[in-house]
C-alpha cells in the first residue's frame, strides 16, 4: 500500500484517559508501515501531555517522555494548542514572558501554536484521526 499522510489529534487528558496512549501506539504502527505523520495536535485536556514537569511512578509509562522521544526519532511535529494550553497552564518561554509567569513547562519536542495548525492538518493530511475523551 502506498504511503498516506496522516494528521492526528489528541483531546483526551493523559493518565485520566487512554486517548494519548492509543494515539501513541497508532502513530508508532503507522510509522512502521511507512506512512507519514504530518502533525500531532494536542487539544482540550490533551495539551497536558506537553508538560515536562510530570513525575509518573517509575513502574508506569511516562507519556510525555514517550512522545518526546518518538518525536525526536521520527522528526514529528507535536503541536500544543495555545488557547487550550493557556487555560491549563502549559507555557513555553516566550508565552511565560508575555503572560508574566515565573516559569515555563513545555516538554522537549513540543511547540505551542494556534488552532489553525489543526485545521491545516485537516486540509493537508489525507486522513485526520481524533483520539479523545
Amino acid at each position: 500500500m502506498s504511503a498516506v499522510k496522516l494528521g492526528v489529534v489528541i483531546t483526551g487528558g493523559p493518565y485520566t484517559r487512554q486517548a494519548s496512549d492509543t494515539a501513541y501506539q497508532f502513530v508508532k504502527a503507522a510509522l512502521e508501515k511507512g506512512h507519514e505523520i504530518f502533525r500531532v495536535f494536542f487539544y482540550n485536556d490533551g495539551v497536558n501531555v506537553g508538560t515536562r514537569l510530570t513525575v509518573p511512578p517509575q513502574d508506569d509509562r511516562n507519556i510525555q517522555k514517550n512522545w518526546s522521544e518518538l518525536a525526536e526519532r521520527h522528526k514529528l511535529d507535536l503541536v500544543v494548542c495555545v488557547a487550550a494550553a493557556q487555560r491549563r497552564g502549559i507555557l513555553d518561554k516566550d508565552e511565560a514572558g508575555r503572560q508574566g509567569k515565573d516559569g515555563d513547562n513545555i516538554a522537549p519536542g513540543f511547540r505551542i501554536s494556534g488552532l489553525g495548525q489543526m485545521i491545516e492538518a485537516g486540509i493537508v493530511a489525507d486522513r485526520l484521526v481524533i483520539f479523545g475523551d
Binding site: 500500500m1 498516506v4 497508532f26 504502527a29 503507522a30 508501515k33 506512512h35 489525507d126
Partner: peptide, 8 residues
C-alpha cells in the same frame, strides 16, 4: 497495524 490499515 490493522487499525492503521482501516484509517488509511
Amino acid at each position: 497495524g490493522g487499525f492503521v490499515d482501516l484509517v488509511t
